[in-house]
Design a protein around this nucleic acid. Structure first.
Lengths: 209, 209
DNA sequence: GGACCCTGACTGAACGACCAGTCAACTCGC
DNA sequence: GCGAGTTGACTGGTCGTTCAGTCAGGGTCC
């Protein structure tokens, strides 16, 4: 009866399609994404895509946030396991630099962000979703700062943790755009160094690499 | 004989179409921009658009950078006329906040930036163009800093002006995204205050509003 | 100055590619 | 055999692009 127990529950088609869609979006771009492409990735006929999603538009909207959501959950879980605030902060920076870690598809994450932003310009629902996702991420940074102040790793007399996290997050967004777009001057390593440096000055963390 | 003395040189059609195109792009978004729309804005038949531009794609690529180029030239001219570095810096901040000044279509400028970024992801030519435009803008900020240090308005013992401008520019990009997307917390005024505050701390300018 | 031609901006109908969405038919596990 | 899952051919609509033709202005020749 529940939606979870399907007759063929080997694969969760819904999720599988969302993953395929976000892959296609990162590869081809939102505007160039066709239902056929998504069907191809799933090894399935195009009709089935519309069987699971009311329209292409809805599917794409869901897919955009889906990947980011997964990424956040994974990261939050990972951070919670780290004992040192410095380590957490360093990891946050690492994960925010597009193309720094080869094992992650961080470029892809950022490419999806760009598409989310463009869509949010004219789709109020997406704008709300984007704000939620952004706020959540900035909150994570703020919590790392608070955690470090609590453990004594960071000096506690600095500015408000939320403000700090917001400014720091904004700078990382701006830098990430440059890195992502293959700026000749702003390489992943340079962005990492800058972020580490600013973190030291602003937060007082001497984050080790 | 010269190309300038046309039979009907009342209007520069080329430029007129570029302006119409960037207007349509800001209104409808790059992906939703049709040749018919651009023709309508010009009060002209769709055939004429393709008479002046080899393809829709080329036209859109040119239109994206055209508006930004105009904006830069206008701004650079304006800044040069201001005697005080503080005034220049304050103006740069003002002009970077989407929706702060009602008389400018700054939201539009930023919306075009988003489209440029998305396109630059997969179009190397656009990526180069974007880097040039970005570098030029950051250079303007760096020059303001150097100018202020020269005139003694800013303390001269700070970090490298180029590095400073780059970090400051990146933060403004990140903040502008939030403002532009109607973030409930990040209002234009708040962004302006943050930028002014950071400028004071980083550059040492006590920029008056 | 009038008849003629030429140029090139401009039109809009028509073509054709592309693609989202539909649907009748088929499969297969229960 | 019922129904959820799946197929893929098909439809209808939407554009980008083409192109044959119109028209206005200006130059040229007598």
């Amino acid at each position: 009866m529940s939606t979870k127990t399907r007759q063929k529950p080997q694969r969760d088609r819904h999720q599988e399609i969302l993953e395929a869609a976000s892959r296609v979006i990162t590869d081809r771009g939102l505007a160039e994404t066709r239902i056929q492409d998504i069907a191809d990735v799933c090894g399935v006929s195009p009709g089935l895509i519309l069987y699971y999603f009311e329209s292409k538009d809805r599917l794409l909207a869901e897919a955009l946030t889906y990947a980011n959501d997964q990424f956040y959950l994974r990261t939050a879980r990972e951070l919670r396991k780290m004992p040192a605030a410095k380590e957490r902060l360093s990891r946050v920076i690492e994960l925010s630099v597009p193309g720094l870690l080869p094992e992650y598809d961080l470029l892809d994450e950022w490419a999806l962000w760009l598409e989310i932003w463009v869509r949010a310009l004219r789709d109020p629902e997406m704008a709300k979703e984007r704000e939620m996702l952004d706020r959540r991420w900035v909150q994570s940074i703020a919590e790392v700062i608070r955690y470090g102040r609590q453990t004594g790793e960071f000096p506690s007399e600095g500015p408000d943790a939320d403000d700090l996290a917001m400014q720091f997050g904004a700078m990382m967004d701006g830098l990430a755009i440059q890195v992502m777009l293959n700026d000749t001057v702003m390489t992943p390593q340079r962005m990492f160094d800058i972020c580490t440096d600013v973190a030291t000055r602003l937060i007082g963390s001497t984050a080790d690499v």
